[in-house]
């Protein structure tokens, strides 16, 4: 008999009892594997942040709908935006959107290798244009709001 338990992956169970084959210990992965270490918690938060990005988009779509529905519908929507619940949703969403942007921008140097004249461009130089574009767009929006 041969030792066979490897074809199906790292955790596959030994299909049948194999004589003289030692028993391997296979720890189960806890449902809470992401708690306890900041790096994994950060990953889960980054993944969850996409939900809040979606909420932000939905709120914006409702705002557009209010705008299309005429002044009264728009003011009604604005009144809703001023309620504590709406402010809380927006605040939480905003923090998650910030987190989403920063974590993904910081990952761009891994996702693309930029070479100039045969040399690899340092990581921060790959991430920097993202932040620059973010700054420019934010400045443009701020100008639109406060001009």
């Amino acid at each position: 008999m041969t030792i066979s338990a490897t074809k199906e992956g790292l955790h596959s169970s030994t299909p049948a009892y194999t004589e003289f084959h030692p028993r391997w210990y296979r720890p189960r992965v806890s449902v809470y594997w992401w708690l306890g270490q900041w790096r994994y918690l950060k990953f889960i938060l980054r993944e969850i942040s996409s939900v809040f990005v979606a909420i932000f988009v939905v709120v914006t779509l409702f705002q557009l709908r209010g705008l299309l529905g005429g002044p009264e519908a728009y003011y009604r929507f604005q009144a809703w935006l001023r309620t504590p619940g709406a402010i809380a949703i927006n605040l939480i969403s905003f923090l998650f959107v910030l987190f989403h942007a920063v974590t993904w921008f910081n990952l761009t140097p891994h996702a693309m290798t930029v070479r100039v004249g045969g040399n690899r461009v340092p990581d921060f130089m790959v991430a920097a244009p993202n932040y620059l574009a973010w700054l420019v767009v934010s400045a443009a929006v701020a100008w639109l709001v406060w001009r």
């Binding site: 199906e8 790292l10 955790h11 210990y25 296979r26 992965v29």
Partner: peptide
């Protein structure tokens, strides 16, 4: 982590 353990600190690498 995530590998079957053969003994003490020795993991099974066949799957890998």
């Amino acid at each position: 982590r995530y590998f079957p353990v053969m003994r003490d600190l020795v993991t099974e690498l066949g799957g890998f």
